[in-house]
Design a protein around this nucleic acid. Structure first.
Length: 564
RNA sequence: CGGAACGUGGCGCAGCCCGGUAGCGCACUUGCUUGGGGUGCAAGGGGUCGCGGGUUCAAAUCCCGCCGUUCCGACCA
C-alpha cells in the first residue's frame, strides 16, 4: 500500500478521552475512531490486524474440528424469553420497530439449530463456531475497545452426548486457546473462573495482567495456582475452638458500629468478632456471617445460594426486620432471616456479634450451640499475602484483562429449547453443551498494551497490519524514488506486505515518527545518505537496531529480517 | 444506576468567575523554503460556542431543563 493513497489518519496529540495506552495508540496510529460510546469504526490498518487475529483463531478452531457458521445478529425476543435471559440486567439491546433483539451471544440460536437437526447420538459431537459482531447493553463502556457495546467475538459451542464428551471438547478448546494466544504473541495466563449466571459446571479464563484490567485474579508465584477472585481460595485456617464455652452475655457497646471500632472498644482481636452482612435473596432476608473484617464476596455468596438474585436490604427495612441498625445485628435470636456463615466460623465459640439491639453486642457465642444456620460456605474475599491453598506461599492479587473464557454449560440451554437426541437406548436426552469465547478487539488492544514504547505501537509479526514499512526519505531525490519504488514492487511480488511511505509533501522526520507510531516490525529506509554508498537501511522497530545493506542484497536481507 | 468533570473550527486547548468585536497551537489551502527524527517564512479558508428555554439593551459567559462524552463506583452472560 502506498501511503500517498492510504487512509491512515495518524494523530500527533494524545486524544483527551483516552486513558489507556492501547486506547491512545489505537486512535493515534489511525486504527480506529469512536462513533459513540462503546462503538468504534475500525479503519483499514486495524482491520488488517483484526483479520490476522481472526485467521489465527479460525485455523486453530478448524484444527480441532470446528465448523464455522454465520449466525443471525437479529433474534426473536421470544427466544430469549424461553431461556430466561431476556431480562438479565445490562445484557440485551433491543430494536424499537419489531420484537427483535440484538444477540449478545448465541447459545440460544445454537440450541435452536440443535433442537431441529440433532436427532441421534450418532449426530454428536459437534463443534460449531462463529466470528461475528455481538451487542451488549453495557452500562458503562470504557477503556477503548476493551469494553464496548459492539464487539467481534469468536464464540464456539460444543454439542456432546456425554459428560465425558463435554470434558474432551472443553479440553480441546483449552488447548486451542493456548495455541491461539501463543501465536498472537500474548503474555497470558489461565485462571479458574466462576461460571456465574451462565450456569454450568466449570469454567476457565485466559487473561493478561494489567493494572487497568477489570477482573481481579489471585495468583501464586510459587506453584502457579491461579483463580479469579470470584472463586479464589486461600489456606487461611478456620478459627480454633476454645476449650471452654461460656454462657452468652450481653455487652454494652455505645456508638460502636464497625468491626474496627468494636475490636478497639473491647480490646479483642478481630478474629473474635463475627460480622453480620445482610442481603435479600429472591426478596427474602438473608444474614451472612464473616470473621472479623473478612470481606464478603458476592459472587461466592450467589454461588453458595444457587439460583436467585442477591440484593442489599434497604436500611429502613433493616430496622423493622431486626429491631436494630446495621452495626448491631447478629445471628442469635434473629427471626425471619435465613442465616449462612463463612466456613472459617465452623465450630467457632467464644465469638462476639450484634445483639439485635442498638448499642449492644453478645459475647460468648458458640456457633454450634447458639446459632441455627443453613450451612458454612467459603464466602470471603482472598487478600494479598494470604497462604496459597496448594503450597502455602503468599498469594498475589492482580488486575487482569479477560481475553477468552471457556464454559462447561451442561444442559441449561438445550433443556430450555428442547434440544434432545436419542441415546443408544432410544431414550431422549438433552444435548450437553459448552461455550467458548474470545474477544477479537481485546487481542489487538492487549497486544498493544504489552507491546509499545514511547514512540508508538510495536507490532509483532503475527498481528502486524503490514510486514514492512518502506520509507522513501525524500521523494524529491530521483534515485530515492527509483530505488524505493523498485523495492516496493519487488517485495510485493514475493508476497511481502509492504506499507510504502511515498508521500511527496512530508519531511523525512515526519515519516520516521509516523512509522514508529504505526509500528510495523521492520522499517526499510531508502534515502540519499545510504544511496551514496549504494546502501539501504533496515531498522527493527522493537530494538531500534539498524543495518545498512547494499542495494543488490536488499530483498534477501529484508526477507530474512521479516522471517525472524 | 450513584458521584464528579467536560462539551468553543478536524484535533488539543484558552476565553466563562467579572455579560459587550470568538482566540491560540496543530492540521488544512496557496506560494516560497527545507529535505535523515513531527522544516522555516508568508498569505488564506474554516466555528449556529452541544441542544432547548429563560434573564438582559446585549449571553460562549448568568439561570433552568435536556442531550452527549469521559472518569470513579455499582454492574460486567
Amino acid at each position: 500500500m502506498r501511503l500517498s493513497y492510504a487512509f491512515i489518519p495518524t494523530l500527533k496529540e494524545i486524544p483527551a478521552d483516552a486513558t489507556m495506552k492501547s486506547h491512545q495508540l489505537m486512535l493515534r496510529a489511525g486504527l480506529m475512531r469512536q462513533l459513540t460510546a462503546g462503538v468504534y469504526a475500525f479503519l483499514p490498518l486495524a482491520y488488517r490486524a483484526m483479520l490476522k487475529a481472526m485467521e489465527i483463531i479460525r485455523e486453530e478452531m478448524n484444527a480441532i474440528g470446528g465448523q464455522e457458521f454465520h449466525l443471525p445478529a437479529l433474534n426473536p425476543e421470544s427466544l430469549w424469553v424461553t431461556t430466561g435471559r431476556r431480562n438479565i440486567p445490562n445484557l440485551i439491546l433491543s430494536i424499537k420497530e419489531r420484537d427483535l433483539v440484538l444477540a449478545p451471544t448465541h447459545e440460544e440460536v445454537i440450541a435452536w439449530l440443535a433442537a431441529y437437526h440433532i436427532q441421534s447420538y450418532k449426530d454428536l459431537p459437534q463443534i460449531w463456531y462463529q466470528i461475528q459482531t455481538k451487542f451488549r447493553n453495557e452500562p458503562r463502556p470504557r477503556s477503548g475497545v476493551l469494553r464496548g457495546r459492539q464487539f467481534i467475538m469468536k464464540d464456539s459451542y460444543t454439542l456432546d452426548a456425554t459428560w465425558e464428551g463435554l470434558d474432551a471438547s472443553y479440553q480441546a478448546h483449552a488447548e486451542a486457546y493456548r495455541k491461539i494466544f501463543r501465536r498472537c504473541g500474548l503474555d497470558f495466563f489461565e485462571v479458574g473462573a466462576s461460571s456465574g449466571a451462565m450456569g454450568g459446571t466449570g469454567s476457565q479464563e485466559f487473561m493478561i495482567e494489567s493494572p487497568s484490567g477489570e477482573d481481579t485474579v489471585v495468583l501464586c508465584p510459587k506453584c502457579g495456582y491461579a483463580a479469579n477472585l470470584e472463586i479464589a481460595e486461600s489456606a487461611l485456617p478456620p478459627l480454633e475452638r476454645k476449650s471452654e464455652t461460656k454462657p452468652l452475655e450481653e455487652i454494652h457497646t455505645p456508638n460502636v458500629r464497625t468491626i474496627d471500632e468494636l475490636a478497639r472498644f473491647l480490646k479483642v482481636d478481630q478474629t473474635r468478632l463475627a460480622k453480620s452482612v445482610v442481603y435479600q435473596h429472591d426478596g427474602k432476608p438473608l444474614l451472612a456471617l464473616m470473621v472479623g473484617n473478612d470481606e464478603l464476596n458476592e459472587a461466592k455468596l450467589t454461588a453458595a445460594l444457587g439460583a436467585g438474585e442477591v440484593k442489599p436490604i434497604p436500611t429502613e427495612e433493616l430496622l423493622a426486620l431486626t429491631g436494630a441498625d446495621g452495626g448491631s445485628i447478629g445471628p442469635v435470636g434473629l427471626k425471619n432471616f435465613r442465616i449462612i456463615a463463612d466456613r472459617r466460623l465452623k465450630n467457632a465459640n467464644g465469638m462476639i456479634s450484634g445483639a439485635n439491639r442498638n448499642d449492644y453486642h453478645l459475647g460468648n457465642i458458640d456457633f454450634t450451640r447458639d446459632v441455627t444456620l443453613e450451612g458454612f460456605h467459603d464466602l470471603r474475599t482472598v487478600e494479598s499475602e494470604e497462604p496459597c491453598v496448594s503450597c502455602n506461599s503468599p498469594l498475589k492479587v492482580s488486575n487482569a484483562i479477560e481475553l477468552g473464557h471457556i464454559f462447561k454449560l451442561g444442559t441449561k440451554y438445550s433443556e430450555a429449547l428442547d434440544a434432545t437426541f436419542l441415546d443408544e437406548n432410544g431414550k431422549a436426552q438433552p444435548v450437553i453443551m459448552g461455550s467458548y469465547g474470545i474477544g477479537v478487539e481485546r487481542i489487538i488492544a492487549c497486544h498493544i498494551e504489552q507491546s509499545h514504547d514511547e514512540h508508538g505501537i510495536v507490532w509483532n509479526k503475527a498481528l502486524a497490519p503490514y510486514d514492512l514499512h518502506l520509507i522513501a526519505a525524500n521523494m524529491n531525490h530521483e534515485e530515492t524514488v527509483k530505488i524505493s519504488a523498485g523495492l516496493y514492487e519487488e517485495l510485493r511480488e514475493i508476497g511481502v506486505e509492504v506499507l510504502f511511505d511515498d508521500r511527496t509533501n512530508v519531511s523525512p522526520g515526519f515519516k520516521f515518527k509516523d512509522a514508529d507510531l504505526m509500528g510495523m516490525p521492520v522499517q526499510v529506509i531508502v534515502g540519499e545518505r545510504g544511496l551514496k554508498e549504494r546502501k539501504i537501511e533496515i531498522k527493527r522497530r522493537r530494538s531500534g537496531e539498524r543495518t545498512l545493506v547494499p542495494i543488490q542484497d536488499a530483498v534477501g536481507a529484508i526477507r530474512k529480517m521479516i522471517a525472524d
